[in-house]
Design a protein around this nucleic acid. Structure first.
Lengths: 108, 108
DNA sequence: GATTTACTCAACTAATTGGTTTACTAAAAC
DNA sequence: GTTTTAGTAAACCAATTAGTTGAGTAAATC
């Protein structure tokens, strides 16, 4: 139910794996089709998918001889929420001295 | 100006570094003070800060013999936006078949 | 039933990571 | 001016990562 932010962030810190996630956002995809666009062996892509599935970001289902992969976005929610806590630091550029506290409750 | 998502996500995929970010969100902190709560050498913490600063997440300023660290949240914005693209996959639990396209434009 | 397809598993390699210690520099304090 | 403080830099180590190849299995096709 709760996957670690460690695994989620680390899994997403690789361009191949983010590409896989992007592909899967279009819908369920066969492992071999996932691997096709990459210039690396299917074994390598399979390992990436394994890391994503260990992180809870991908579900792999075996039907016949084929592995179907689909996105499981739940862990991304936690990552997104963790990041959102820092939104105040990038929306306005405060002087990074905690001065944002003063503006708490203001409307624009 | 644009730091890589690779570096941002990878940097945040470590609990020590996320703790450092959390600490820095309270305001500028000396490197030695950052290191204090961790059960590892200051050198190790210094390396973590280096990774955060390479990722653009932390600015280090030398004043006298002391290094002052402060949060630079800008790269987190990009990471947050990347994640937000997948929000539709965790807000309602669609059957991961792209069926959300049908509901585009619905209210609630 | 032989062949092809879609994979996994195991073994290996090179590079990176996360940590250590020891030695050094530079600023501050005594 | 000696000592302490705050830090870096270099060398090292063990574990992990990102890839490879080669062999094997199980399902589909011919």
């Amino acid at each position: 139910m709760s996957y670690s932010l460690d695994q989620t962030f680390a899994a997403l810190g690789d361009p191949t794996r983010r590409m896989i996630v992007e592909t899967l956002s279009a819908g369920e995809t066969r492992l071999s089709d996932l691997a096709e666009p990459f210039e690396m062996s299917q074994t390598a892509v399979s390992k990436h998918v394994r890391i994503l599935s260990d992180a809870g970001l991908v579900e792999v289902e075996k039907r016949g001889r084929t592995r179907y992969c689909r996105l499981e976005a739940a862990p991304m929610k936690a990552a997104n929420e963790w990041l959102s806590d820092y939104q105040k630091f990038w929306t306005n550029q405060f002087d990074n001295l905690g001065s944002f506290l003063v503006t708490k409750g203001d409307d624009e």
